[in-house]
Nucleic acid binder design. Structure first.
Lengths: 249, 249
DNA sequence: CGTAACCTTGATTAAGATCAATTCTCGTGG
DNA sequence: CCACGAGAATTGATCTTAATCAAGGTTACG
């Protein structure tokens, strides 16, 4: 599945969600798909900057890596979310210079990760003829700025226990919103959510939380010993929501 | 000085630099000036979101603060740089909702800091009629995203000595670029720059580098003991550029 | 059912924060 | 012009968090 790009895929992407079939055809005409297996790097450095990406299937981690091999994951990208827009817009006037570089490294963290690559030049032309999309793009970048501001806040002002607590609460909230959407859509009532399923390895989670696997493991254990959560491999059940919230402050 | 907003001030702002006098008049018609003394908070929380800011004189720090009072400075804003654009664009479709919040706190760090406040709604109208500005705005936000990515990289992957070294090298580079600009403009040749003047207090610098004053002080001393830099209160002379570069990696 | 990837647990170390005591610097008023 | 005091910076001793090093356990999957 997903060997050919179709308009309905594009329609799921926020930036393109309000376009007509003809306009989607145009986007499709200059974009292309690429498939990656777990662990494969999305050839960021080898290729010159080609355009921005959108995940259609699987998942991608965006990370920085130090000269000693230490890694920090800034984002995990799931289907229909875009990334690597920065080089397109950064150099106003000199649009996509030859020496454009990607701000982050990208690696597939699931097998059969499919991404669509949307080249910068044709996209910029398209935007010029559809200025409404500028506001969508500005919205996407603005949200990411807020996310990064909060991420820095977490990393610099909170200890590991607080960071993990906050992360769990966020994921719980996401799951709840998801539930509400399904309820609205299907007109049914689902039972209250009190657990989450980690969608990434604990190693990747530790890297995202700015710590290491061992420390994360111990921190999970602490929260479990305090009867605040229950950890069953990837399933985390929240036993004491109030306390978790208290800790995360 | 700077009691009345003039077009030439607006012209120094990247976003507005290519506008005509009439267009600048329009911007001026819905914007207003505000003055702050050192230590004053730019009433972020008390007021509902009014618009984005641009410093015209003085300097502003943008920071996060924890429940225990620990602070981290993300940006120092100097004249003609804008900030607080995020809430304008974040909620596409629901443009500047009532509950819009500023992503960061802001405080003047010099006396007589003058900022111009540009309200969201009239600005959005203006942009709609001048879609070329969208690209400038996208450029500004994209640059900031790269900056934050790098900032996170520094905080999570480098120790304090590396972070300080990198900071000094960046400031040195800025000073060099500045020198080159003056040389070009005036057609003269200035002598090579090998020192920088810290423009903020060491306390603020430590907060920006993700550490505390004492640790920063010791790190300066280490670099000085190794004959890599010389510290004379706010003046830092780079004695061994190569070694400093080596450390910062 | 064997092997590799993933995760946990324990002992030790190190970087940097905290606490505390001075010293330096600079603007203001006598 | 000097003295004073407040804010800024330095230095030292100690403590804490989390990283590192090391070993073993668990899980998933061909």
């Amino acid at each position: 599945m997903l060997n050919k790009l179709e308009n309905k895929d594009l329609k799921n992407i926020f930036l393109f969600s309000e376009l007509s079939e003809e306009e989607l055809n145009e986007i499709r005409s200059f974009s292309h798909l690429k498939k990656f297996d777990k662990g494969e790097i999305l050839s960021f450095d080898s290729e010159p900057y080609s355009g921005f990406y959108c995940t259609l299937d699987g998942a991608v981690k965006l990370y920085k890596i130090s000269s000693e091999g230490k890694e920090h994951i800034l984002h995990i990208i799931y289907p229909y979310n875009t990334f690597a827009e920065v080089p397109i817009f950064e150099n106003y006037g000199e649009v996509v210079k030859n020496n454009a570089t990607y701000p982050l490294n990208a690696m597939a963290i699931e097998d059969n990760t499919v991404v669509i690559i949307i080249p910068a030049r044709p996209l910029l032309n398209f935007l010029e003829n559809n200025p409404k999309l500028y506001l969508k793009m500005l919205s996407t970048l603005s949200k990411r700025l807020r996310f990064l501001n909060n991420h820095i806040e977490n990393l610099t002002l909170l200890d590991v226990k607080k960071r993990l607590s906050k992360y769990l609460l966020e994921k719980l909230k996401e799951a709840e919103l998801n539930k509400e959407n399904i309820e609205k859509k299907k007109g049914i009532k689902l039972k209250k959510i009190n657990s989450i399923e980690l969608s990434i390895s604990k190693n990747d989670l530790s890297s995202h939380l700015g710590t290491i696997l061992e420390t994360l493991s111990r921190t999970f254990k602490k929260l479990q010993d305090e009867k605040i959560i229950e950890v069953d491999s990837k399933k985390i059940t929240i036993l004491d929501f109030q306390k978790l919230k208290e800790i995360s402050k």
